[in-house]
Design a binder for these strands. Structure first.
Length: 423
RNA sequence: GGAGAGAUGCCUGAGUGGCCGAAAGGAACAGUUUGCUAAACUGUCGUACUGGAAACGGUACCGAGGGUUCGAAUCCCUCUCUCUCCGCCA
């Protein structure tokens, strides 16, 4: 959520930036500023009345103590209508506040200046590409055939138990998952991230803090009886650790990693491109979260991006890095890099990580602040990135490393799987 | 699920109608002392909005929302959360 004071002081800049994103309701900005102006005007009128009421009340107290009963009574009768006036002002202010809030929550973050213009995924900018196309035979199979050939992931069984998009991992498939999780967590620890195990359900305040609510509740599974949501990503519970807190400047950067399952309803996305592991309702992911000083956040973003790339290199996967264009970025992000791996049998790029700087967009909602060197409160910057999401990594490993004798496990993982081939 | 207790500033904790934006201690920050560290001493030390060039003011906030009153951290109502005991249980 943008700060109203920032919008007020940088109106043109905000409008221009939102146009880059393809935000349609630009006129809302003007409306917002009008509402804010009248709110502040009413507020100061109300403050004057309140000040008078306070003075009168204080006088009554003093007169009573001095034993001057009648004078006190006189002021009392004069004071009785202050309350009504203040109440009337308060009602107007509450109404305006609500309107202001309703607009603020639909305004997306302002894109960083390096974000390319563009509205669709085609306009994302490829900033880096690494690795070779694996040399596969004509008979190379897509991963959903390999999983049943080696009996490591059973999609139908998951459908029976829960529904489509909830696969059952079996035998070496389950072990591969466990190996990847441990590999990712160990690497993150080496890179200085402190591991946490958060709840995998969140309340409404947490969902609001990181920007999933309001608006995206349709993407999350809702447990109505207890008013909780299953997490769509560990970003939500991990970042919310710091909600309503004042962090020490010396503690920057705060670095956490977390493994969690993630749940997404993915309502309305079906078809050939979501086959197999490409898009699931439940999947595993190791997530990185950082909270930094505003001056450091873009440097941190680059570090997170290169960290994620080292993981892909260690796994021997061909990948590319995209800088998302304004229209393709998430609502809360100021700058996002997507990492995509090449899935050789499908001949498709699969997104396996998304690394974003949210600047103060989340911290303004979360109220994550620190005291700067001048003793002033400032909002911290929040960032996060997947490192990594498992299913598409599994898909790429299966497809890219398939041989006649089975699927060769990447060397970096063998210490974790304790087998070299899936066969 | 049943019964009870509680929610105050970064933390602990006092405060039952006006002199309370809030005692005290701790932490933190600055200074004095010190060979260094520690200790001691002195001072500073809430947030948000708002007026002002600044100095310095105004308003709001003691879990949330209502109410009583000239006046509420303090009294009343509702809600939320936390803790303790009992029950159940991985």
């Amino acid at each position: 959520m943008l700060q109203i004071s920032y919008i007020r002081e940088n109106k043109e800049k905000v409008i221009e930036a939102l146009q880059k994103r393809g935000f349609r309701e630009i006129e809302k900005i003007e409306e917002l500023i009008r509402l804010d102006e009248s709110k502040r005007s009413i507020q100061s009128q109300s403050d004057i009345i309140a000040s008078q009421a306070n003075t009168a009340a204080k006088q009554v107290g003093e007169l009573m103590r001095a034993g001057k009963r009648e004078e006190a009574e006189a002021i009392k009768t004069n004071s009785s209508n202050y309350k009504e006036q203040i109440k009337a002002f308060a009602e107007d202010i509450a109404e305006l506040d609500q309107k202001i809030h309703d607009i603020l929550v639909i305004i997306p973050n302002i894109p960083h200046e390096s974000v390319p213009a563009g509205l669709t995924a085609e306009e994302n900018e490829v900033v880096f590409q690494y690795g070779e196309d694996p040399d596969l035979s004509q008979e190379a199979l897509p991963h959903w055939e390999l999983t049943s050939k080696y009996d490591i992931i059973d999609f139908e069984l998951g459908t029976k138990i829960a529904g489509a998009g909830f696969p059952v991992y079996k035998g070496k498939g389950a072990k591969l998952q466990r190996a990847l999780i441990n590999f990712f967590l160990d690497e993150a620890e080496k890179a200085g991230y402190i591991e946490v195990q958060p709840p995998i359900v969140i309340n409404e305040a947490s969902g609001f803090g990181t920007g999933q609510l309001p608006d995206k509740e349709g993407q999350m599974y809702f447990i109505g009886q207890d008013n909780l949501f299953l997490i769509p990503t560990a970003e939500v519970p991990v970042t919310n650790i710091y909600r309503d807190s004042i962090v020490k400047e010396a503690d920057f950067p705060i670095k956490h990693c977390a493994y969690t399952p993630c749940f997404r309803r993915e309502a309305g996305s079906y078809g050939a491109h979501v086959r197999g592991l490409n898009r699931l309702h439940q999947f595993d992911k190791v997530e990185l979260v950082q909270i930094t000083h505003p001056d450091q956040s873009y440097q941190t973003l680059e570090e997170m991006s290169s960290y994620v790339q080292t993981l892909l290199k260690k796994l021997g996967l061909k990948y590319r890095v995209l800088r998302l264009c304004g229209g393709d970025m998430g609502f809360t992000s100021a700058l996002t890099y997507d990492m995509e791996v090449w899935s050789a049998a499908q001949k498709r790029w699969l997104e396996v990580s998304s690394v974003s700087n949210f600047e103060t967009f989340q911290s303004n909602r979360l109220k994550v602040r620190f005291k700067d060197e001048n003793g002033k409160m400032q909002l911290a910057h929040t960032l996060n990135g997947s490192a990594l999401a498992l299913p598409r990594i599994v898909a790429a490993i299966l497809e890219n490393f398939q041989t006649e004798n089975g699927v060769r496990v990447p060397e970096a993982l063998q210490a974790y799987t304790r087998f070299e081939f899936i066969d």
